[in-house]
Amino acid sequence: MAKVIWSALNIIKGKARGEGMKLGTKEVCQIGHPVLRRIAKPVSRDKIPTPEFQKLLDHMIRIMRENKAVGLAAPQVGVGLQVFCMELSDLHHKLIGAERFVKLQMSILPLTILINPHLTVTNDTPVTHEEGCVSMGGYVGRVARATGVQIDGLNRHGDEEQHNLTDWTARIAQHEYDHLQGVIYIDKMEGGSLRSMLCTEHKGVDWKLIESLKQQNIL
């Protein structure tokens, strides 16, 4: 545990190499980094109040917010510990838009930190939506998730918490909990549903060339 905490502190100070993340940037570990495929280690309760661990939590919150993400797990910043944070804020509401926010059955979720979490499905009715991940920037895929979950864990003060979540907040919890098991959303997505978020903008398409090919009956 001491080795893991020390590694986390080095990352925060910007001394770690090859982790795909630098302090003060929007970078996180990207798919292909081995830490994303390892099962995260539990955190000893007596380590939670330490300055090093609290700095890790603050660092995760900052990186999550810099990326305008709704969740972030410790492995995504190169630290293989069972910790994740979630937040669905007023800012996300504005970015997503009120109509889409309602359509996706989203709801405001205050900043939540969970250490050594345990997730239980309370409503296994599957709902499928597109998901993205800051560890696979620029892509989304359709993933079926349980409608309701209960998640138990410790907060940053070491106190036990229980959260009963539904719809999109349940999706966030399942996504982040998966990261602690070495699972990325592409492992669960519908086959063939992965797409670049730029695809709707048709980047790189030469429409004049396409029209010319059509006129010559080539296309």
Results as ranks from 00 to 15, higher is better:
Lys203Trp: 13
Pro75Glu: 04
Glu87Thr: 07
Leu91Val: 13
Thr122Pro: 02
Leu165Ser: 04
Thr147Tyr: 08
Glu87Gln: 11
Thr200Phe: 15
Leu109Gln: 14
His129Pro: 08
Ala74Val: 04
Lys103Arg: 13
Ile108Tyr: 09
Arg156Ala: 11
Leu198His: 14
Gly153Ser: 04
Glu190Arg: 09
Thr169Trp: 03
Gly158Ala: 03
Ala146Lys: 09
Ala74Ile: 04
Phe101Ala: 06
Leu114Asn: 01
Thr122Ile: 11
Arg171Asn: 03
His179Phe: 05
Met86Gly: 03
Tyr139Ala: 11
Gln82Glu: 14
Glu130Arg: 15
Leu91Gly: 11
Ser135Met: 11
Gly192Glu: 04
Arg142Ala: 15
Ile108Thr: 10
Ala69Gly: 03
Leu109Lys: 08
Phe101Ile: 03
Tyr185Gly: 01
Met86Lys: 02
Val183Arg: 12
Gly138Lys: 02
Gly80Lys: 05
Glu161Val: 10
Ile108Ser: 05
Ser193Glu: 08
Ile172Cys: 00
His92Thr: 06
Arg145Ile: 07
Val183Ile: 15
Gly153Arg: 06
His175Met: 02
Glu131Pro: 06
Asp159Gln: 14
Glu130Asn: 14
Val83Ile: 07
Asp90Arg: 13
Gly137Arg: 11
Glu161Asn: 05
Cys85Asn: 04
Gly141Pro: 00
Cys133Leu: 00
Ile96Gln: 10
His202Leu: 15
Met197Glu: 15
Asp178Gly: 07
Ile96Asp: 11
His92Phe: 05
Ala98Trp: 02
Ile151Arg: 08
His92Cys: 01
Val143Ala: 05
Pro117Gly: 09
Gln174Ile: 10
Leu111Glu: 01
Glu99Tyr: 09
Val77Thr: 03
Ala98Leu: 10
Cys85Leu: 07
Pro117Ile: 04
Ile172Thr: 02
Phe101Pro: 00
Lys68Ser: 14
Val70Ser: 07
Lys68Gly: 10
Val70Pro: 05
Arg171Leu: 08
Val143Arg: 01
Ile96Tyr: 13
Cys133Pro: 01
Asn155Met: 05
Gly182Leu: 03
Gln105Ser: 14
Asn67Ser: 11
Gly192Gln: 03
Lys188Thr: 13
Leu72Ile: 11
Cys133Lys: 03
Asp159Glu: 15
Ala173Trp: 06
Ser107Ile: 04
Ala73Trp: 02
Asn164Ile: 13
Ala74Asn: 01
Gln162Asn: 07
Val127Tyr: 12
Trp168Glu: 04
Lys203Pro: 07
Gly153Thr: 00
His92Val: 06
His157Ala: 12
Trp168Gln: 08
Leu180Gly: 02
Glu201Gly: 08
Asn116Leu: 02
Gln162Leu: 10
Asp167Phe: 14
Ser196Arg: 10
Glu201Thr: 14
Val205Glu: 13
Met86His: 05
Ile184Met: 11
Gln174Pro: 05
Val134Gly: 01
Gln150Lys: 15
Leu95Arg: 00
His118Asn: 12
Asp178Ile: 05
Gln76Lys: 04
Tyr139Thr: 12
Ser89Ile: 05
Thr200Trp: 15
Leu104Cys: 08
Val127Asn: 07
Asp206Trp: 12
Leu194Ile: 05
Pro110Cys: 00
Lys203Cys: 11
His129Asn: 13
Ile96Lys: 04
Met197Pro: 03
Ile115Tyr: 03
Trp168Tyr: 15
Leu165Ala: 08
Tyr185Val: 08
Glu66Tyr: 15
Leu111Met: 10
Asp167Gln: 12
Pro117Thr: 02
Glu176Leu: 06
Ser89His: 03
Phe84Ile: 06
Arg142Trp: 10
Gly153Leu: 06
